[in-house]
Computed example of a mutant assay.
Amino acid sequence: MRDLRNGPARLLVVDDNKVNRLLLTRSLELQGHSVASAENGRVALEMLQREGFDLVLLDMEMPEMDGFQVLERLVHDRKLRDLPVIVTSSLEGVSNVVRCIELGAEDYLTKPVNPVLLKARIGASLEKKRLRDQQTELVRRFATPEVAQDLQDSGFSLGGKLVHASVMFSDIRGFTSLAESQPPEETIELLNTYYALMFNAISGHGGVVTLMMGDGLMSVFGAPVPLSDHGESAVRAAQEMVELIDLFNLEREAEKKPPIKIGIGIASGEMVAGYTGTNQRATYTCIGDTVNLAARLETHTKVAQRAILIDQATRAALSEHVEVEPLGQVPFKGKAAPVDVFSVGLEQKL
């Protein structure tokens, strides 16, 4: 995201009239902007796909691809649909103006364009883009890229939809005792390192972290973005998480700090995924029996003395290359019948 408060904005002038292009480009460069130009809509779209621009000044009547066609392509392009476009055209009539605005144009100026008015409209459009980019960056900072993209694509609304996915719960064993034995600053540093390692493993296998609570993490594989092999992806992520903690413990040992261990529970099946809370404060999460089972499995890792536990549905989704040990049936609170539990070994390196 370009910071429009520092340095020139990058503008694209699209006009089939060479004289108009040159004059408008010169005028905009004198205002301090960096300007490129295209002689028709087709060339403009190719440039927009290759380069980053902050605003487009678009003529309507052009050969090969006119301005209306360009706007239609932009509005359906996820990457370019929020790019501000100011139409500069000799076409008159309210119907043309309305059509351009409906197709996403920021503004419509009739040729010959008043330079003072154009400067003001460009400034206003760039400021709105800056604020929109700033808002997007804030969303991406406090939400995962997948959730941020879901918000951008579908908009925000409380509620959820039924999905088939895998849920993972994980936490640090004995974290409370560890936190009490060291300064708070050291605990925060440990958590930040732990989060960085776990997020890398989870996101690297298509997972989305939906909840952080102290040392505990909840992740989902298969929502909001569908994932065909969500069960195996979750297990592969869990194996990598354990391996990363083992490597991290080598550093802690060198610093004469106690090692840490994690427990991970994974369950697969149907659940409801969506936004819960209020219109002022909400979070993306998953609920349902599958989610509850994953939490129970994570808690049971302490009893089973295993790092990774999974249910039968996850076990059924795994390839033969994943080492699995059946631990028998375990009765869990809230479950009418005992659950088949399996332990997963670490990934074998070739």
Rank of each mutant, 00 (worst) to 15 (best):
Arg140Thr: 01
Phe169Trp: 03
Ser228Ile: 12
Gly174Phe: 08
Phe175Ser: 14
Asp215Ala: 15
Ala179Lys: 07
Asp150Trp: 01
Ser157Arg: 15
Ser170Leu: 06
Met212Cys: 13
Ser157Tyr: 15
Ser181Gln: 15
Thr136Gly: 00
Ser154Tyr: 07
Val147Arg: 08
Met168Ser: 10
Leu191Gly: 02
Gly204Phe: 05
Gln135Thr: 07
Arg141Ile: 01
Ile188Gly: 06
Thr210Arg: 04
Thr193Phe: 06
Phe175Gln: 13
Thr144Val: 07
Glu146Leu: 00
Gly155Phe: 05
Thr187Phe: 00
His205Ala: 08
Gln152Phe: 05
Arg173His: 09
Ser170Val: 03
His205Asp: 12
Tyr195Ser: 10
Met212Tyr: 13
Gln149Ser: 11
Val139Asp: 00
Gly231Met: 07
Leu197Asn: 14
Arg173Cys: 09
Pro145Met: 04
Arg140Ala: 03
Arg140Gly: 03
Glu232Met: 09
Ser203His: 14
Ser157His: 15
Gln152Pro: 02
Met213Ala: 15
Leu190Arg: 07
Phe221Tyr: 12
Arg173Ile: 08
Gly207Glu: 06
Ala179His: 06
Glu189Ser: 13
Arg173Trp: 05
Gly222Arg: 07
Ser166Tyr: 11
Pro184Thr: 11
Leu158Gly: 14
His164Val: 13
Gly160Cys: 11
Thr187Val: 15
Gln182Ala: 07
Val225Thr: 13
Gly206Arg: 01
Ser203Met: 15
Ala196Glu: 12
Gln149Pro: 02
Lys161Cys: 13
Glu185Phe: 14
Leu227Phe: 13
Ser166Gln: 08
Tyr194Ala: 02
Gly159Ile: 05
Thr176Ser: 11
His164Gly: 10
Gly231Leu: 05
Gly206Asn: 06
Thr136Ser: 06
Ser157Phe: 15
Val163Glu: 12
Ala179Gly: 10
Ser203Lys: 10
Tyr195Ile: 11
Glu186Lys: 11
Pro145Gly: 04
Glu189Ile: 07
Leu191Arg: 02
His164Met: 12
Thr176Leu: 02
Met168Tyr: 08
Leu138Cys: 06
Leu217Pro: 08
Gly207Ala: 08
Asn192Arg: 13
Phe142Asp: 01
Ser181Pro: 12
Lys161Trp: 12
Gly216Lys: 10
